[in-house]
Simulated scan of single mutants.
Amino acid sequence: MKILVTGAKGFIGKNLIAELRNQNYTDIFEYCKETNHEQLDQYCREADFVFHLAGVNRPKDQSEFMDGNYGLTSTLLEALKKNQNTCPVMISSSIQAVLDNPYGISKKAGEDLLFEYSKETGAKVLVYRFPNVFGKWCKPNYNSAVATFCHNIARELPVTVNDPSVVVNLVYIDGVVEELIRALQGNENMVGDFCEVPVVHTITLGEIVDLLNSFKNSREERSIPDMSNSFTKKLYSTYLSYLPEDKFSYDLKMNVDHRGSFTEFIKTAERGQVSVNISKPGITKGNHWHHTKNEKFLVVSGEGVIRFRKIGSDEVIEYFVNGEKLEVVDIPTGYTHNIENLGDTDMVTIMWANEFFDPEKPDTYFLEV
């Protein structure tokens, strides 16, 4: 299948082409500003489907709206008619097409042109009125507030929100791409005369900024956002894509002594805490028990033994562990326990606890195994 994508270097175009290739679509004609008219004519002769994503969002002069959003559509459709190609054509329009502003008027003109083209030629046309689209590879300081917020907050630059209570409707780029590929396969989500991305997120600008600031702070707090919320999950992925390339990593506080170290990695109120414990050779750590707090130990390097003794019993239970055979050992409540490094090298253990350590209520009682 030969697919023409206009606006191939734009935000939606780059994401769409990347996923088309992931799904083994190999004949993709990429049209952008540098493409000449002869190439466009060839593409329009051979294409089996057209994604018309090119357009003008932020021109230097408002007259460029009509040139970019109406004029280019006209050129595309004329080339298809010249080559007698009635393949399906999808166009990216905007919810602003119903508004009386230069951008909206130009988008509405492009829609009308496509509908007339369909009546004239019988070609299938798909008009998508997108709300605000967010996700990786969107240009900041252009036409996306989310992209600008992500870029600025990731760099500790100021963010300006005139009215935090303004409500916006957003669609995530992956959802857009999934819908466009469904359209390519003839399964578009048609609502009346137009097509829509099924999942739309409604949120205020103030809430978006608050979330993004919490993502930034999560590094210092060693926390993870609530991934059960689909919008938070998508926004967090978007935010990470705007990190400066020299800021991908961040330090953790290592609690170091002669026995080794203990470092908190991730803390979540809902799913507990993950830490990394390093024990020097011959060192035993632990010798305590809990009422309600419980843990999971996973030795990933080195070798050792985890010992248990039930409170009120003299019987000691031993689990030998090493990094060559990964196995998780649950630490049940009511058992005093310790972990000893039996090897000649550092032993590294990933530890999960079901709750944060609370110095006011540690639920940790010293008792030798």
Rank of each mutant, 00 (worst) to 15 (best):
F215L: 00
F215S: 00
S218H: 03
R219K: 14
R219S: 03
E221S: 12
P225W: 01
S228W: 01
S228C: 09
S230E: 14
F231W: 01
F231C: 02
T232I: 15
K233V: 02
K233Y: 12
K234C: 14
L235M: 13
Y236A: 09
Y236E: 04
T238I: 04
Y239L: 08
L240D: 03
Y242H: 10
E245F: 13
K247Q: 15
K247E: 15
F248W: 10
F248Y: 10
S249R: 10
D251E: 12
M254V: 13
V256P: 11
D257N: 14
R259C: 07
R259A: 10
R259V: 03
G260L: 06
S261K: 01
F262E: 00
F262W: 11
F265D: 05
K267M: 07
E270V: 08
G272S: 01
G272A: 02
V274I: 15
S275V: 00
V276L: 11
I278G: 00
K280G: 05
G282H: 08
T284D: 00
K285Q: 07
N287C: 06
W289L: 06
H290Q: 08
H290T: 07
N294M: 09
K296W: 00
F297V: 04
L298A: 14
V299W: 01
V300I: 13
V300K: 06
S301C: 12
S301L: 14
E303W: 02
E303I: 10
